[in-house]
Amino acid sequence: MRTERNLTRLDRVFARLDREPERPAHLDVPKMSRHRIALFAATFAFYLAIVWAVLVTSWLVRLDWQVMFFRPYQQWPEIHAFVDYYVVLGQRGPTAVMVAAWLGWRSWRQHTLRPLIALGVSLLLLNVTVGAAKIGMGRLGPHYATTIGSNEMWLGGDIFPSGHTANAVVTWGILAYLASTPRARRWLSALSAVVSLGVGMSTVYLGTHWLSDVLLGWAAGLLILLALPWFEPLITRAESWIFGLRDRWYARRARTEPVKEPVSTPVVLTPPPASDREGTPAREPVSASRSRTPVHLAPGPHTARSERTPVTPAGSRRPPHADRHSRNAAPAARHLSGG
């Protein structure tokens, strides 16, 4: 009876690391549904409300000053080292490298460039929108404030909205946007919301941002994620253009590479002998005749050594000599002399 081995959790993880044979068909591309449009409109209204509350120096500005005078970094100094490291999760450089590495692996595994292109589009929108708002409103930070109780707007600053918070929302939220299943999308959405809010509160703890900066940065990042489905046709066209460019480059490279011809053994031509040049029919080389006609060194049936007829050589092999006689002949009589 054949039994199959039960896969462990580690086996399933390594199975997920293998590349799929082709692009999976179950990848869900988010669309701009009514629910998403309603969330986008509500977030945009919240964004405008925060800006208006700061412009008119409302209760939100007074709350900003109260938190600044509270100085959280002096109230809880024991967590200062942890917050210094945690706030890195909102810096654009390190987070973009980490997320790009993960999405690059996903692109290779699923034979698609959509994850990387979506990340690039979201970061481009983040730089344009948040950067323009920072420069346009020019609000000074808590460490550079000049007048107590003022909104510190249009004084040459660049902290409103919070770039750390908006970058954390977009960078970690893009993982939820590109999730393959609804369950993974829900978990990653909650995780990105907690991380981004934690990054924003870390900047308030360190005194580098007002509380209203964090709220506006969170809304700015969420607006970019909610608006991404409008850019899906652009992402699809960019992916098709890149793949087409790659195929054309491969075809051009295949045409320009030289074709390797098989190496042949050089044939040396020798002039025929004089007899052949005078009209005598030419002989075939010995090697050619031997290669075409099989040669049998011992034709006929093979017999054992005992069955073979002995062959006696005719005559002696020794050279003739005057003093030598044959073994069978009688010796000649010797002449006796003397008395």
Rank of each mutant, 00 (worst) to 15 (best):
G198P: 06
V97M: 12
P331G: 05
V199P: 05
M153P: 03
R283T: 05
W241E: 06
A330E: 11
V67S: 02
F46W: 12
A81I: 00
L226I: 03
L269P: 00
M137L: 15
R246P: 00
I224P: 02
T165G: 08
L60H: 07
W59C: 00
S316G: 10
L225W: 07
L39T: 01
S180A: 14
S240T: 08
G338N: 12
P271S: 10
D247G: 12
N328F: 12
T8V: 00
A329R: 13
P262H: 09
N127V: 03
F69D: 13
R5T: 11
T208L: 11
L175A: 14
K260T: 10
E261T: 08
L89G: 12
G173P: 07
R248C: 01
R16M: 12
V51M: 07
A304D: 13
H26D: 09
R327K: 07
G338C: 06
T303M: 06
R106Q: 14
A15C: 01
W230K: 03
G90M: 07
L206E: 13
R36W: 15
H35I: 04
H35S: 13
T270F: 13
T181Y: 07
H26W: 04
R12Q: 13
G149S: 12
A81N: 10
A49C: 05
T147V: 15
D158N: 15
A298F: 12
A179T: 02
M32F: 15
S33L: 05
R2G: 01
A238Y: 02
N328M: 06
R277A: 10
A145M: 11
L63R: 09
P310D: 03
L228I: 05
P72L: 15
H143C: 00
I235Y: 03
V51A: 12
A166F: 05
P285E: 09
A332E: 13
E284S: 01
R277D: 03
E152I: 00
T309W: 04
S316L: 06
P319S: 10
N6S: 08
E261L: 15
V51C: 01
A53W: 12
L39S: 09
A38H: 01
G338F: 09
H302Y: 04
A330W: 05
A132L: 15
T203Q: 15
A100P: 02
S192A: 15
L10Q: 07
G136Y: 11
Y73G: 03
T293R: 10
S150I: 00
G131Y: 09
L10D: 05
D247M: 09
I159E: 08
E261Y: 08
V97S: 01
L124G: 15
T112D: 06
A227N: 04
L225D: 02
F160P: 04
A168Y: 05
R106F: 01
